[in-house]
């Protein structure tokens, strides 16, 4: 929210006084809730993304993700009822999915990342938690080849059913280079 260009020239001042505090509290709250309710090692890393207006980012271990997702949704202090975006990223040494969560009632936002092995990528499906994840997970599966165990209908969604490979992978090579 605060990354907007506000003409008037008060931006640097605001950055100093306002930016760190409110979102740091959101981040700390989420981390402590996850550690106490889900698992004390559920959060691998937590930081504020200053580039994105101080968005709280949490990297959650894949084995605890489903439980953490349920808590993000149902715990009133977090209340992330809206999954606004789901992206998959291939970092060449590992794969990652990013969930941009939002609480409609409080306006709190989180970017949650879950990392997985590149050779056999698998991240628990959260379609049961946010139905919005359904097609998004299918898209990530289709284009990046990440498996989502627990997904009700994990099929290709963009590419043809008989397509070989996952095009958004960094090492993807088309079978027919002319195409």
């Amino acid at each position: 929210m605060s990354e907007e260009e506000k003409p008037g020239g008060t931006l640097p001042e605001e950055e100093e006084t306002m930016q760190p505090s409110p979102q740091q509290a959101d981040l700390d709250e989420a981390v402590s809730l996850l550690c106490s309710r889900v698992h004390d090692e559920a959060v691998a890393e937590a930081y504020l993304n200053e580039m994105n207006g101080g968005m709280p980012v949490l990297i959650i271990r894949s084995e605890h993700w489903l439980e953490a997702a349920r808590m993000f949704r149902s715990e009133p202090a977090l209340g992330c009822d809206y999954l606004r975006n789901l992206s998959g990223v291939d970092y060449e040494t590992y794969m990652e999915t990013v969930y941009h969560l939002l609480s409609m009632s409080t306006g709190k936002q989180y970017a949650v990342k879950v990392r997985t092995d590149r050779d056999n990528p698998s991240i628990p499906s959260v379609t049961a938690v946010w139905p919005a994840a359904n097609w998004n997970e299918r898209e990530v599966y289709d284009l990046l080849g990440i498996d989502f165990p627990g997904h009700p209908d994990l099929r290709r969604i963009m590419m043809p059913d008989d397509w070989a490979g996952h095009p958004l992978r960094k090492d993807y090579e088309p079978l027919d280079p002319e195409v």
Partner: peptide, 8 residues
């Protein structure tokens, strides 16, 4: 610069 954003 290196990093990531989500804008909407």
């Amino acid at each position: 610069p290196e990093g990531e954003v989500y804008v909407r």
